[in-house]
Structure formats: C-alpha cells, structure tokens
Design a protein around this nucleic acid. Structure first.
Lengths: 197, 197
DNA sequence: ATAAATTGATATCGAGTCGATACTATCTTA
DNA sequence: TAAGATAGTATCGACTCGATATCAATTTAT
C-alpha cells in the first residue's frame, strides 16, 4: 500500500486542500480570492514569453474570459500592471506591481511549506522532485494544453557560453536568471520524451 | 535548484491545477462543480468515524455552512445519502449512494493519474509517498485543524490478532479494510512526532 | 438539577468565480 | 483584399464561499 499510486494521489489531494485553505486565509485579509493569489504567484515566476492572460489561463486550467475578470480585479487593486506588447498589439503583457510584489512578500504564503519541508534531506527532495516532475510532464502531455516548465529540463534550451544561454524555440538569448523562470512552451528532455510512446 | 523545496511547491501547484481542471471537465458533464467531486471522493475513502459534514469541511478547509450547501446539492441529485447517527442525534452521517459510486467509477477521474504514474518504480513511489506524507503531517500539525490519515501511520492503531485490529482512540474493533480508510483523528507515529518540537 | 456553554448542522445573504457566448481588434494566410 | 485565426474583453446565469444567525442536541459548570 505504500507503493500505491492512489495513496500518493490522496496525499496530494489533502496537501492541495491545506495549501488552498492557507491561501484563502491569506487572501481574506486583503479581500482576495484564492485564484487571485494563484495568478500573482504565477506572474512572479513567468518568463517574458509567458506573462500574458492566455498563458495564465492555460496554467490555471480556466477559460480566458474567466481569467480576464480576475486580472481586472487585480489591476483595480494595483497589484499588477498591464501593458501592450510591442510586436503584436493584440497581446497584453502582465507583471506584478511593486505593491503586488510587496504583498506576496509580506503574505508569508510560503512559510508553512518552508517550515514543513525543513527536515527533508536534499537527497530526498531530489527524488521527490524528479518523480513528480516526470509525472507532471506526462500529465501535461496527455492533457494536451500548454506545457509549463523551466529551461533546465527543456529541450529548446542550450548554453552558448559561460554565462549566456539560448532558447532555440524563441531564437533569443536568455540570462541565467531568466532560465529559471516558468515557460509556457516547455518541452521535456532526457527523463521523459513524449514522442517515444 | 533540484533540491529547492520551492521547486517542489511549484510542481505541486501546477499538478493541482491540472487535476482540478480535469475535475472541472468531468464535473461539467454531470452539472457538478469541482467541490462536489472532491466531496464524493472524500466520502469514498472516509471511515465510519469521519463520514460527517463537519469532517468533510475540515478536510476541504471550508466552513461547515459552505459544505452543507454542497451536500444539499449532492443529496438532491441522489449521489449521496444522509442518515441520523444513532448515538448523537445532532450528527448526520453521509455515504455515497449506489448512483454516486457508479458515477465515480464511470468518471475515469483517476485514469489520467494512473497512466501518468505507470512508469514510476515501486521504490520511487515509496520514497515520494514517505517524504510527502511527512510533509503533510507536519503541515496538518501546524495548521491546527483535524489530522487526516490512515491507520497504518496512526499511533492509535494496533493489531489484536491475525485479522483483528483495534483503535485505542475510539476503543473499537476495526476490520482490515477499515484500517485502510481515511480517519479524521489520525495522529502520526514513528517518522514524525508532533510533540517533540 | 438546571442553566450556560459547546457542538453539529442548516438557512440566508452578498460578493465574487466560472463557463458559455458574443463581441472587438489585430494579425496571418489564401 | 477577403477569410480565418488569435488575444482579449463584456455580459449573463448558476453556483461557491464566508459571515452571520438560528436551531437542536449534548456536555459542562455551578
């Protein structure tokens, strides 16, 4: 029973409810719903190709209309900023305002998680991350929508020199910190290749 | 970065959105919201001490008033049954109706998960379950509400004979299959003891 | 023993989510 | 240059959710 995948799903379910409940508590203090915090947390991680309403909708698994309303509210509360894209004038770009960043910082949303994982060894975390990441990539592949992930595990990513990285997909240079951000066109390499099944 | 707990949190976040999105899809076909499916899934696992509206509210991290409404809807749709407790006449007991069980079976809700974890070795799953379970128990302890878990990891549980188990907390006999159900008064043993911190 | 407090559940209300649909604006393709 | 695709917004109805109030049953305190 310890090796039952459904046991794992049950744990994830309960963990999800606890984290969600914590978000509700934190959001309540600022008049925000859970989905608003999720949006802000996403925007804090998203790279410059993935900071749009559409990408957020795909990340959250909601329709763009629904997400549009949430973004409107965040904008009214000055927690995010929206600006036109230079290339494609249909596209709206999003970023956290300084108030938004401050609000996330103060919220202490990650504290519960941090303190509860403190005693896990680096090795154990590595195993968990690796296994869940494989599972995530498989699920994303089957679900058929966008695939989210960071450059580290992406097939489009390559190192050009000591400090210069490159994305073959967008054909653009990436800084090291950009390479750690979340991207909506992630394609997993090594451990799991969606093609060979 | 592979060993960063926040990386793990990010994966759980995205996994949660995907699973939630899948529930929305399945629920949409039957006119149910995500929370209704979550309630049914809980009731399919809960033991006989934990099948009440209050326990469900604690599991989901919602108020009892909110949960009461969801249960009303499930009852109207004949997906659950409600009956009075024999001992305490304030208490309402819940169980899935045969329609409810059938509906869960047909939904194929676990298929996505099953197929995506198929290639994880038993050993890998064991490690993941163990690490996340420790984390879950810590979070539950800090959150201060009810602690959910199965007898296997509970300090109140003991084996009386070959096939007979016993719960010291409720002072009642448990069958083997009952021992695998979810309980709202779980207290973790061995790996993590909340007292010694 | 009886009043007070607690507990489990339901009802009501308002703010807000969410999908469906329709719509506008912009870009791409034929 | 017209048709289609894409990004985003607006509107509407069903429903969630917390806050609050209420009720009944149980437990505790005096």
């Amino acid at each position: 029973m310890l090796k039952d995948p459904l046991t794992l799903l049950g744990i994830l379910d309960r963990l999800g409810n606890l984290l969600r409940s914590d978000m509700r508590r934190v959001g309540g203090e600022s008049g925000l719903q859970v989905v608003h915090l999720q949006a802000m947390i996403y925007l804090a991680q998203a790279n410059r190709f993935s900071n749009t309403p559409q990408a957020l909708a795909e990340y959250l698994g909601l329709t763009k209309g629904t997400v549009s309303q949430s973004l409107l509210l965040l904008d009214r509360n000055n927690l995010i900023e929206r600006y036109q894209d230079g290339e494609d004038r249909r596209v709206v770009r999003l970023r956290l305002s300084s108030e938004g960043e401050e609000m996330l910082r103060v919220s202490g949303l990650h504290e519960l998680w941090r303190s509860s994982t403190r005693d896990l060894s680096a090795n154990r975390i590595r195993t968990v991350v690796s296994a869940l990441r494989d599972t995530l990539f498989r699920i994303q592949d089957q679900a058929g929508g966008s695939n989210f992930g960071t450059c580290e595990t992406c097939i489009h990513w390559s190192r050009r020199s000591a400090r210069a990285y490159h994305c073959e997909w967008y054909g653009e240079r990436l800084s090291m910190s950009e390479s750690r951000e979340l991207c909506r066109t992630h394609l997993p390499r090594s451990t799991y290749l969606p093609e060979d099944r």
